[in-house]
Design a protein around this nucleic acid. Structure first.
Lengths: 260, 260
DNA sequence: CGCTTCCTTGAGTAAATTCAAGACTTGTGG
DNA sequence: CCACAAGTCTTGAATTTACTCAAGGAAGCG
């Protein structure tokens, strides 16, 4: 396959480090500007972040960080989906978080991470060197406040997931997962009440996220299809035909306790 | 029963509000001084906290806060055990956190809480008025830093629990729970390798914490007793006879991934 | 085209739940 | 002091849900 580069893209890539530096991409035009760690920053603060950031890209399936490895970078997800997962002695694994665009990886004041981070689709990260970023956080209340908010959001999401893992049936888990995808990807096709979107995970990855086996995930998704709640145009691309029915299957109360 | 009050205790109680103000209890002598939200505070900062704090006590089983209720107080657990729990439409419930002494309840920047907080044993809280505390946090980096650390610790604990809820067997869940109790209550009786402690929860509460039924909890605890891993002197008071065997039953690897 | 990865579907199994009955503990009132 | 009730815990038997094992189909890629 032929790769064509246009001069005005001004790309400076370092293949070995998998680093992509795009001098033209300004923070102010960043798609996650209003939700990411930089959401509260003013123009001056943004200029500093702009000068120290580095984009890195990962292919679906690539490991991004390993548990216990010292953290070189902290990062925001700009595009794509990454997952956090933990593993038992005998290999059983459980996803403990799904990182969508604007979510943050890593934490100030911690030298390492307690889980593996993997790209589940192609992923672009906006990375900051650990130490450089930490220094910046210390002098920038807008950053530390936003980090706190993001941590508390993750904590709420983790607790919703604990309820799902501990008490929901397979059917309810699948319905909750699909509903979460709909809520968190509002930007995509919506036609009346019908939301079309893609599953960003394989059946096996969904199973690891929901504490199920891949066979159970497959059976439940196909059951929702037969019952007319979902419609698949492809094994990964689908449409929610009946959002209310989907919600009824989640086991949550009407006003929706979930925070995504 | 006759209540006797000594003058030098200088207690000022308000029964209706369940508030106990003990002017003599200095923060500097507080049992959780070094682990709680105030851990990093210097003497001046501590003096301010000391002046705005109020102790409140709750009896086992009492509700402390309800989901959705506006937060009046933020608090640290001084003594006893409290639990956070979430409930599905049909009443199934899942504990999403266990608060032991030094743990913090509530969060700056959030008007309400997404779960119910209940006293599982008699509990003493060190309470701060929401708005008063928030103002203090804004001018006190030692407080906001510590709050961030506590939030990240809770996040790690929540993720360990997600692995437990999603992937561990009943046996592994029970073993992990007991091991956590041993680790988090180092202060109690230890005689050689034998740790004696109390279960701070009923079988039913343990079941809600582990995503099991109370019958399964009972069966597994009795199985561990029969196998000589645990010894019960009472239905709530027990001794771990073999900590290594207990760890083998948790499913975690030898170096222990759990953070409590 | 053949390989690999991903997904589906069926049949049998196992782990934990549900349902049920009864035992132990603690506190209350006669 | 005993009887009784309420709450907690134990144990057994039947049931159910999701898992395991197995085989084959569909899609993507060299």
């Amino acid at each position: 396959m032929l790769m064509v580069r246009y001069g005005n893209e001004n790309l400076d890539t370092d293949q070995s480090m998998n680093i992509l530096r795009d001098e033209n991409m300004q923070c102010s035009k960043c798609p996650i500007r209003h939700r990411a760690v930089c959401a509260k920053c003013d123009d001056d603060e943004l200029a500093v972040l702009n000068s120290i950031k580095v984009y890195r890209t990962f292919k679906a399936g690539d490991p991004i960080m390993w548990r216990g490895e010292p953290l070189e970078y902290l990062a925001s997800v700009v595009a794509g989906v990454a997952s956090l997962s933990k593993t038992l002695e005998d290999g059983r694994t459980q996803m403990v978080g799904l990182l969508l665009p604007s979510d943050f990886i890593g934490r100030p004041g911690r030298a390492q991470i307690e889980f593996d981070v993997t790209a589940t689709t192609d992923v672009t990260l906006c990375c900051f060197k650990h130490q450089q970023f930490e220094r910046l956080v210390d002098d920038t209340p807008h950053l530390s406040q936003r980090l706190m908010e993001l941590a508390l959001d993750e904590l709420d999401a983790a607790r919703d997931w604990m309820l799902l893992l501990g008490r929901k049936t397979a059917r309810e888990k699948i319905a909750t997962f699909v509903e979460m995808l709909v809520i968190r990807s509002r930007s995509e096709d919506v036609e009346g009440n019908r939301h079309s979107l893609a599953l960003p995970l394989t059946r096996d990855q969904i199973a690891n996220y929901l504490g199920l086996t891949l066979e159970t995930v497959s059976r439940q998704l196909n059951a929702l299809k037969k019952e007319g709640v979902l419609m698949f145009s492809d094994r990964r691309q689908f449409t929610v035909l009946d959002l209310a029915r989907l919600h009824d299957e989640t086991g949550d109360d009407a006003d929706g306790g979930m925070i995504f």
